[in-house]
């Protein structure tokens, strides 16, 4: 009874059957096969399996449907990649608003330490101007009165009368 074929022999026989063996390996296996017909049978069986595998229908994707799925996914992924930028810019805008909101009231407070608003100051300025105008008018009026009425007419005429009476006394 023949012993079992060694792994080395089986391996080389399979390589011959699958057409992967080098020239020297093929020669070696042919020599072994002369002495042992089991090797020939092994080669033939593996050759048939190899042919079946080569002729086998292959699993394939439905090209268009799959490609559309991929393109759709890529577009989605690109949109997702842009989303963080949008979120970041949104957050930056929000942060700016918050910072400004925190800073501006303190500035306004500084300005608010002044007791009057700009409009109130302008109104007060107008009132002061009006008051000054009134005073100026009164002063001018008084000056005219003093110059024209009091100095000229009352004091002047009295002095004139006095000087006339002195002249008359002196002449007489």
């Amino acid at each position: 009874m023949k012993s079992n074929l060694s792994d080395r022999v089986i391996d080389k026989a399979i390589r011959v059957a699958y057409g992967e063996a080098h020239f020297w390996e093929r020669m070696q296996v042919a020599r072994w096969a002369k002495d042992d017909t089991r090797i020939l049978l092994l080669i033939e069986e593996h050759r048939q399996v190899a042919e079946m595998i080569r002729a086998m229908d292959r699993y394939k994707l439905e090209d268009d449907a799959f490609r559309n799925r991929i393109l759709h996914s890529i577009e989605k992924e690109n949109a997702n990649k842009k989303r963080p930028f949008l979120i970041a810019s949104g957050l930056a805008g929000f942060a700016t608003i918050v910072v400004l909101a925190l800073l501006l009231p303190s500035k306004i407070k500084v300005e608010e330490t002044h007791p009057y608003s700009r409009l109130e100051i302008e109104a007060a300025t107008d009132q002061v101007m009006q008051a000054l105008n009134l005073v100026s008018y009164a002063v001018n009026d008084t000056r005219d009165l003093v110059q024209n009425d009091i100095v000229e007419q009352r004091i002047g005429s009295t002095l004139q009368k006095s000087s006339q009476s002195i002249n008359e006394h002196l002449l007489n």
């Binding site: 792994d7 089986i10 391996d11 399979i14 069986e45 593996h46 048939q48 399996v49 079946m52």
Partner: peptide, 11 residues
């Protein structure tokens, strides 16, 4: 090699 052998015996 083992895969090929299994395939052969299965087939």
């Amino acid at each position: 090699m083992r895969a090929r052998q299994q395939l052969r015996s299965q087939l």
